[in-house]
Design a protein around this nucleic acid. Structure first.
Length: 705
RNA sequence: GCGCGAUUAGCUCAGUGGUAGAGCGUCACAUUGACAUUGUGAAGGCCGGAGGUCCGAUCCCUCCAUCGCGCACCA
């Protein structure tokens, strides 16, 4: 053996050997020959094909690889199916930033040009990410790799879309949606971030009433004045009553509306409504069948209805509008310290401008009900357990899902829209030539799907639902391992869509890991310049050191501070293992290579002790207690095998009889090989390398656990 | 507002109904040894606060505090 362990030499060599062996493919495993072998399936959360791997990827690779390797060694037909995500909106944002740096803009390109450029961009990134996963030791089956834009995946997504329409769970309609004026697209409720702010609250004189608003710039079209039906203060005003009054740009006639959504305790208990730009107001307008007018355009600028303010951005218009209202004597008072919550784009922080738009919505309640039942019945179990409650709470309060996005990069929505009435018709075969509603001419829906609509179908789509052989063998999958952060975006939707499409849960267990933070416990971000590149750590200390460093001391669901010190400590552990192996090999009796040459040492106390430890570790792995399993084998190898057993055998190895020497060697070799096996899921490279030095021609990855 | 999580050694975190553990750091001693180091040992914690259950609570229950995070259409 070399005096030093060179991870940079060993790791790529070992990985190639594994890959060449074919054992990543469950059909080529020794277990495949055994008809009784249980399948074990993990579908990889596909990394976004828009950038490099980060520390979070190293975390998921480590945990999923541990699960997969453990299952494989236990004789299961282990499948870990890799993939890459086109990541619609996320990728388009990344690409737009790139364009911006080059002095270009997506608004100067056709959709087709943009799509082609982003396609090339993702294909390049995909290769980087795939190499990164290999460097991290991922024992996934590359022959089954999927991309979310693969034609077979798209076909399955389309079939689900159609089925949703046939089952009347899909509708297209003018609904108020969350619109980002910067990104020029609508979102679902999950892409919105609520931010607390302090703004002025303006009390405006509206005829005989005083209304409170934080957004005077939306008030141009306001012609309904709403109050609670039980409000004694306004009992004199009747529902539907007309009132003439002077408003921002001249006299108007307002109509009194009584609606119990009004909070009598807020402000004056009276408000005017702007249904086009506010969800509450929209709901009131729906109930009373009121007119809706657009005030603000898609870029966040005022429309002609604003008169002299038309064309202004809302932020600059606000002060000027208040100035004018003040001059007209319509400002009753201003509360400068009004604390409220505003909705912003999760990506750019721009204020969300609600707009009424025609979008595709999935009616979620029926889907959520099935998911709730499945979770309550324990058909899907969560680690850590408290995520169960979090999921149920979200599912119980679910709202309809807007799955349309006004961006080029994504799966095109297979539908035709009517030029005249706007009606939408799902059309998978390009067969719809006229609007079934009014007979008008139709055009292709220019929108794409919310990327999560397709990712939500990932477990069954990747396995070739409904007829694929893999689907029959490997679905439902065993575990979905992913980041706790995307539980609503992804996990709950996979459960709902999986149940909907296949009538079965997509996975039996969900394991959620936390964030990987920097050494100081801060979230990594480019702006803070504290991003740790896992591949650099790997080069410096070895992948094995990084992997076990991500596992020990990390419980499911909690975040982990990644300190380089710790990884260095585990690099030292690699060195320790190497030296243990060297020492034992140095003491190998000359003839031991021949079978049966070593004495039987199975009655030694050390053997029994190890067997007991192994049983504990196995139980921890079954229970997803990877941190305990890893710490126990780590501690055993260093502080029992090296510090105690080897030390106590040294005198016999040096001065004992031949028989004693051989017995000592047999004991140490047995304990080392068993330790390597137990450590392999955590530190696959060094364990494989050392194993093959002792057992040439065999492969630890497929040794029986 | 509702909910969830956290609070344990200097730091980062495990853990258990029976006098508290790891890694890193600190200190002392040893060691050229299988060990770009390692070994032996030490210091260091009223296990956030207050009640309760129990023979016994860091662990279970209640309340509180602080921090973090979700969810929430009050203009």
């Amino acid at each position: 053996m070399e005096p030093r362990y060179e991870s940079n030499e060993v790791e790529p060599r070992i990985y190639k050997q594994w890959e060449a062996s074919g054992y990543f493919d469950p059909d080529k495993l020794p277990a495949a020959a055994n008809p009784g072998a249980e399948p074990f399936t993990v579908i990889m959360p596909p990394p976004n094909a828009n950038g490099h791997l980060h520390a979070g990827h190293a975390m998921f690779v480590t945990i999923e690889d541990i699960m997969t390797r453990f299952a494989r060694m236990r004789g299961k037909r282990a499948l870990w199916l890799p993939g890459m995500d086109h990541a619609g909106f996320e990728t388009q944002v990344v690409y737009e930033r790139k364009l911006e740096k080059e002095g270009r803009s997506r608004f100067d390109m056709t959709r087709e040009e943009l799509r082609q450029e982003i396609w090339d961009f993702t294909q390049e990134n995909k290769v980087h990410s795939e190499m990164g996963l290999r460097a991290l030791g991922a024992s996934c089956d590359w022959s089954r790799e999927k991309f979310t834009l693969d034609p077979d995946i798209v076909k399955i997504v389309y079939a689900t879309f159609k089925r949703l329409q046939d089952d009347e769970l899909l509708y297209r309609g003018k609904r108020i949606v969350s619109w980002c004026p910067k990104h020029q697209t609508s979102f679902s409720d999950l892409e919105i971030e609520d931010v607390e702010r302090v703004d002025p609250l303006y009390y405006l004189q509206y005829g005989p009433f005083v209304i409170a608003t934080a957004r005077p710039e939306t008030k141009f079209g306001d012609k309904y004045v709403v109050m609670h039906p039980d409000d004694a203060r306004y009992a004199q005003y009747k529902d539907g009553q007309k009132i003439d009054l002077e408003w921002i740009n001249g006299p108007i006639t307002a109509t009194v509306i009584k609606d119990s959504a009004i909070d009598m305790a807020f402000g004056t208990g009276v408000m005017t409504i702007t249904p086009w730009h506010d969800a509450t107001d929209f709901a009131i307008a729906e109930r009373h069948d009121l007119d809706r007018e657009q005030i603000i355009d898609e870029r966040g600028k005022l429309l002609p209805i604003a008169g002299e303010f038309a064309g202004m951005k809302i932020t600059e218009a606000r002060a000027k509008i208040i100035e004018k209202l003040r001059a007209k004597g319509l400002v009753a008072k201003i509360d400068e310290n009004y604390k409220h919550v505003v909705r912003t784009c999760y990506k750019c922080g721009t204020l969300i401008e609600p707009q009424i738009k025609d979008q595709w919505f999935v009616q979620m309640k029926p889907l959520a009900e099935r998911a709730i039942k499945a979770i309550e019945r324990g058909e899907v179990a969560f680690t850590p357990d408290h995520y169960k409650k979090i999921c149920l709470h979200w599912l119980e309060n679910i709202i309809d899902w807007n799955i349309s996005r006004q961006i080029a990069w994504g799966i095109p929505i297979p539908a035709k829209l009517c030029d005249q009435c706007g009606h939408g018709t799902v059309d998978l075969e390009d067969a719809v030539k006229a609007c079934p509603q009014c007979g008008g001419a139709v055009h292709q829906d220019p929108d794409t799907f919310d990327t999560w609509f397709s990712s939500g179908q990932w477990p069954f789509a990747t396995l070739g639902y409904p007829d694929g052989r893999d689907f029959k063998t490997f679905y439902p999958t065993d575990v979905m391992e992913t980041a706790g952060e995307i539980i609503f975006f992804w996990v709950t939707r996979m459960i709902m869509l999986g149940l909907y499409a296949t009538d079965r849960v997509p996975f039996r267990k969900v394991y959620l890991h936390g964030l990987v933070l920097d050494a100081k416990g801060q979230k990594m971000s480019k702006s803070k310049n504290n991003v740790i590149d896992p591949l650099e750590i790997t080069k410096k200390y070895g992948t094995d050191a990084l992997r076990i460093g991500l596992v020990i001391g990390n419980t499911p669901g909690t975040s982990l501070a990644l300190a380089e010190d710790r990884i260095r400590g585990y690099r030292n552990f690699s060195t320790k293992i190497w030296n243990i192996a060297r020492f034992i090999l140095m003491n190998r009796p000359a003839e031991s290579a021949e079978a049966g040459a070593l004495p039987d040492i199975s009655d030694r106390e050390e053997i029994r002790q190890f067997a007991a430890l192994k049983a504990e570790i196995t139980a921890h792995l079954e229970a997803f207690e990877f941190h305990l399993a890893a710490e126990k084998i780590y501690h055993y190898i260093w502080h029992t095998l090296a510090d105690k057993v080897i030390e106590s055998e040294k005198p016999k190895l040096r001065d004992g009889s031949d028989a004693e020497k051989r017995a000592s060697y047999a004991l140490l070799e047995h304990l080392l090989l068993e330790s390597l096996k137990t450590l392999h899921p955590f530190m696959p490279f060094i364990t494989e390398e050392v194993w093959q030095i002792f057992r040439p021609g065999t492969m630890l990855m497929v040794e029986p656990w």
